[in-house]
Design a binder for these strands. Structure first.
Lengths: 344, 344
DNA sequence: GCTTGACATGCAACCGATTGCATTACATCC
DNA sequence: GGATGTAATGCAATCGGTTGCATGTCAAGC
């Protein structure tokens, strides 16, 4: 190997190794190693001496070498379907924070909603991480099981039996939203649906249907795929055409787009149309402020990493299905159903 | 080492190694290695045979071991000051994408605007990456230089001589914004400032001052720290009290908060007050739609990784200071200065 | 028929740590 | 004073690959 001409250490000084520290401080490499990893095995004096030399030389243990011999490198991976979707940044941040506190480094992967891409990333990560968190995975179940067999793995918003998962249970919040709309007199509403393969979407759609049926509301589904501001905006036209008086959107982003689309059609929200979002990631930043199902997505990241950690440490291998509940936050995008438009 | 009882491979099957593949296919380990890394050195038949065996056994080269012997592991790190700030997700996504295409894995770090935390992360990453991108670093120059000496490093929105950097040059856009406001008749404006240590903030503040001076506008500075929706909202009070007729905010988030704060004070935008944002990351999602300085932040991530790559491959070690320019996007949050409030 | 060289493969050292198992030195106890 | 125990340290194998160099084979060239 030609260390000087290849990529690794061609910067100024090449990093000192354990051997150099050993030679300079007159002890064996084993001792140097122990000075860092198990100082209680060594005499106080030796530890101090070795560390002093290490300091002077600027020695830092090589993580890669350490990983090879111990099989632990303190890395985990987090794969999300779209970094740019406002649902994820808080989740990423919380996951990151938790991992940090545990001294772990986190690889971030962005699948862009593409299963093939997700698998590619997984393949690259799997060899160099001790655990994985897959948020809103679009992979099929069999694939996920294969990876889960190789490494501790935690899913977010994906419900696969036998694999540790944290689910943001938006059903109660969605049900509350339907109830809220029903009380306001809406009889005919739309569900603006997200990705077919998304567990969250299925869950929300089902919750809408079930609660609506219970209350005798009619509901139609209008797609916004992929879920985004733009597809939400475009959905305004068919929604208005359908004659419904309220819509509940797959997520806040879609709801925000819908708000814009409605404004463009001169439909006044909430006077003549009501909109409910989901996730509560936009806070009060929309206009009008969005009534939405609050989903504590940051907690999901935090909890997922927590579960991953305990799994990595050999704990709790039993079936874990952690549910995070939700509730409705009423703001300004919902109001009484307009008398004239009431359908049926 | 007790592989079975520690963390590494306690999952079902322990991963097959190069030796096992070698034994089964009746060749040496070197040959197996070459079948994967330099197949052109081997006969076609051998490659096929080895790969078939590897496939059957489910062998995948161990990245860590490979990294130890070659000194390359294909990892890079990206550290940002706040994942949840909408400025970063597009940048992260673009950086990610570029790295992906180059077959690299990316570690993501979130410093939360805290230099100490940033340094901690850096320390954890440095040993296991081939290169670093620091976006909006809050570290002091000396520290950065130390890390830059150890690994290829690219800065985003930080201007340190001798270190490769990509700068989003918002000066032209900001100047255009001032000109725009001046033309609309505003004579007295506020700059809602961001983090003192931020290069972007300094640059924007200076651009505002310079251009305002040139056009004879009076400008005051009102802080919003840390920059966020909330601090922006809170800044509305002092801003209104100061008697200015327009404000240009450090970033879009602050501008959006300001918009909300103004609405709460019953100040009509743009009729009686004009607001300009910076970064153009909120697109048209604010109400009223934000006039802002468009900064192509995604490109910054893309370009930074590109430069990092070429640096990692030994190329172009000269001084690189890549500027990304900006322009003003006029939407609906700016309008003519109100006659009655005109100051001076 | 023997040299020559190209091609395919194997040998073994090496990357930089960790760690089970000696070994050594010294204090303790009978 | 010798057996015994304990604390501190060293030896050497190992993790799973990569790679410079040596070796072997076979066909072409003279």
């Amino acid at each position: 190997m030609k260390r000087d001409s290849d990529g690794r250490e061609r910067r100024l000084e090449i990093a000192p190794t354990i051997s150099q520290v050993a030679k300079v401080s007159g002890v064996s490499r084993a001792t140097v190693s122990r000075a860092f990893t198990r100082p209680e095995m060594l005499s106080e004096g030796t530890v101090r001496r070795v560390k002093a030399v290490a300091d002077k030389l600027g020695y830092v243990p090589n993580q890669v070498a350490r990983a090879l011999s111990t099989g632990r490198h303190g890395n985990v991976a987090l794969i999300v379907s779209d970094v740019a979707n406002p649902f994820f940044p808080p989740l990423i941040r919380a996951a990151q924070l938790h991992a940090d506190r545990a001294g772990l480094c986190v690889f971030l992967g962005n699948s862009d909603e593409d299963p093939a891409r997700e698998e590619l990333l997984l393949g690259r990560f799997i060899g160099q991480v001790e655990g994985l968190v897959l948020a809103s995975s679009r992979l099929d179940e069999a694939q996920i099981r294969i990876y889960a067999a190789r490494r501790p793995l935690v899913l977010i918003n994906r419900d696969i039996e036998g694999i540790t998962r944290v689910l943001i249970d938006t059903a109660p919040g969605v049900a509350a939203a339907i109830a809220h709309l029903a009380e306001l007199g809406h009889r005919h509403i739309a569900y603006v649906s997200g990705p077919t393969t998304s567990w969250s979407n299925q869950q929300r759609r089902n919750a809408v249907r079930k609660e609506a049926a219970k209350r005798g509301l009619k509901v139609i589904a209008i797609p916004a795929r992929p879920p985004s501001y733009d597809t939400g905006r475009l959905a305004a036209v068919p929604i208005v055409a359908s004659g419904v008086t309220a819509a509940i959107a797959f997520d806040d982003l879609v709801a925000q787009g819908l708000l814009a689309g409605l404004a463009a059609l001169d439909v006044d929200v909430p006077r003549s149309f009501s909109v409910v979002g989901c996730d509560d990631v936009l806070g009060e930043t929309t206009y009008p402020q969005l009534t939405t199902v609050s989903a504590r997505c940051a907690d999901a990241g935090d909890v997922a990493v927590g579960l991953l950690l305990s799994q990595m440490n050999g704990g709790a291998s039993g079936e874990i299905r952690h549910k995070l509940n939700s509730h409705l936050v009423v703001r300004a995008s919902t109001g009484p159903a307009p008398a004239k438009r009431k359908s049926r």
